[in-house]
Amino acid sequence: MSKITEAFKDEKVFISFLTGGDPSKEKTVEYIISMEDAGADIIEIGIPFSDPIAEGPVIQNANIRALSNNINTDDIFDIVEDLRKESNIPLVFLTYINPVFFYGYEKFFRRCYDVGVNGIIIPDLPYEEKDEISENAKNYNVDIISLIAPTSKDRIRMIAKDATGFIYLVSSMGVTGVRNEIKTDLNEIIYEIKSVTNVPIAVGFGINTPEQSKKIAKIADGVIVGSAVVKIIEEHGVDSKQHIQEYVAEMKNATRI
């Protein structure tokens, strides 16, 4: 069982996202550790990209902040390297295909293996194009996290059968960002996924309140929160630690009820 899947063994999982290098490399390491302390089970680190087409304004802005700090892919590997001195938490990269392609697939996944990245989410790499990276990802023990959307319908089984790590179930149409309400009938999609795979399911996009966290934890194996955390960093910059910690603790606790 992969390190990521293992995280789902005992309880509902809370997955927290931040953009690497926002507001700085050091702070990213610090915030990840504080999220782990607060109960986060898996961390998603965003590798900044100039044109993140699946992101809403909050994460777009975090990408711009990181890039204007001259943060690059090697810096993100440095962050992981530093983090690994103190933490063993499962780590997943979130980025777009071009930075990975540019870096070189083999080199990129070898670096992932060397520094200890366990999975990768690439929103603009759908099932049909997965072969770009599947061999390298497999060779270097990096789970490719598949996304399933409310529009996936007849594609659900095909994607689920091939999934590794966990399945990222996109709660709503559109891009990332805080939403007041999740309207998609997730139960039906989860039921269908479960009929073909035991790979755990985590739900993301729009989740930001403990109530939502609690609701999702009842039907899925994990909850993913991104924009809400990034928003805290946007607001508090280098002084976000305590705010993040409190928020993550509250969200994680909600999954336990």
Partner: peptide, 10 residues
């Protein structure tokens, strides 16, 4: 190719 989020694939 079709390098696009899953939401748009169908």
């Amino acid at each position: 190719g079709q390098y696009i989020p899953e939401t748009l694939m169908n």
